[in-house]
Computed example of a mutant assay.
Amino acid sequence: MVFRQVLTLLLGGLFVGLPDCAVSQTLVRRVIDHFLNDTTSPAKPRLLVYPIAAYAPETSVELGVSSLYLYHAKNDTSLNRLSELQAFGFVTLRGQYGLNLENAIYGDKDRWFFLGKVRIQRFPLLYYGIGPASHGKHPATVDAFSILFRQRAMRRLQPNLFGGLEIDYQHLSRVDFKQPENLTHDLPLGSQGTSNLGLGPGLIYDSRPNPLTPRKGFFAEVAYLDYGPSRGSTLSVNSFIADVRGYHTVRPQQVLAWQVYGNMMTGNVPFNQLALLGGENTMRGYYWGRYRDKFYAAAQVEYRWLPFPFSKRFGAVVFAAVGTVAPELNKVQFSHLLPTAGTGIRYLLFKKKDVYLRADMGVTREGVGFYIFTGEAF
């Protein structure tokens, strides 16, 4: 992921800097005006498409395309919030592939709200075991075909309050566990593949004008999902999710943001559906899935300069977080709390839509993680 995102930026820089024999100066100016100078009206939709190249030992060379589409319903910036659609597709020379889609769509006058993601891929992941004491030096490599479909279809109940149905479908097949040389992991539940469909009610409170760069307001979600055999699920699972975030403008262009997140699962939970700690959003610095179990809780705080007082486009953040996993809520041990902290740089990508490119570095007791994405982590 890190090499992929870094090389994406390098390719973008090489494209803008091509000589006259490859791309005319007029085309280069148009590219700069379209993507950097942001000369169009704030009400107009914006589309960014760029190539991706990467290399990793487990995937070999990876090539792909990523895109970001931003718009306001009916092009009305006074009544409607910023909606976003992101897409990323890739293939590798070893036959691996993936398609990732994310959406946060606000209808006209907030009548509807759709929030979700889709991931279809055959891509290796690292499995360190289950629980807060899992071994960190010798992970198994799991190669499998997976489908993840998570969507919230919400209707406005009151201003900023939405209620509706949450859907989560997770499929895992063609699973191949490759054990490390120095350690043999016990094969977890679901190692032969599973398909589970979860349905349930959800409530979302969202007063953020811009979900990609929140400067004020609150976001809160509570949801209950039931993965029952009556819907064709391989295993019986229940999941409860709570996510609360707050954003406060401390000074002009400076924001204090915080988040508290919890996920509690019961039943026969396959390893790929366990609550996963780490990744680019909450516990930055830990590999996504480094720790996994039926219960996961985390809290983080971040201070943002968007942008610096002396710059029109560059800003920065500092953040800290703590989290843990456990088999049950009443079995959480404070000795297993995992801290992380870090900093990041921001670049104002779309000035008139207030959207930033972020580059974050998270530092943990186990190492360092680097992330480059569009939009804030939370």
Rank of each mutant, 00 (worst) to 15 (best):
Q259Y: 01
T141I: 15
D176P: 00
Q86L: 07
G278L: 09
G228L: 13
L82E: 08
A275K: 04
V61E: 15
N100Q: 13
F114H: 10
V250Q: 05
F15M: 13
V322D: 07
F162M: 06
W112A: 07
S236P: 01
E84T: 10
L7A: 10
C21L: 10
N160R: 07
F310W: 13
M154P: 00
L126G: 02
I120Q: 08
G375I: 10
L7T: 06
V91E: 09
A299D: 05
P229C: 03
W305Y: 11
G232K: 11
F319W: 12
K312M: 06
P139R: 07
G279D: 03
R150L: 12
I345H: 03
V244I: 15
K351C: 06
T59R: 12
V16Y: 12
P339K: 11
H34F: 09
A53Y: 14
R94A: 09
R245V: 02
E166V: 08
Q5G: 00
F177C: 02
T364E: 12
R358S: 13
L85N: 05
D360P: 01
P307C: 11
P180W: 03
Q25H: 07
L68V: 12
F240G: 13
T249W: 00
H72M: 05
L36E: 11
D360C: 06
Q151D: 13
G323M: 13
L212H: 00
N281P: 02
L70H: 02
A316Y: 05
G13R: 05
K109N: 07
T184D: 07
S239C: 07
Q86G: 07
E181T: 05
A53K: 04
N272E: 12
D143M: 07
Q179A: 00
D354F: 01
L256C: 04
Y356C: 15
G217N: 03
R174K: 14
R215Q: 08
G89W: 00
Y128N: 06
H72L: 05
N268H: 14
L9N: 12
V31A: 13
L349S: 07
E62R: 11
S230M: 14
W258L: 08
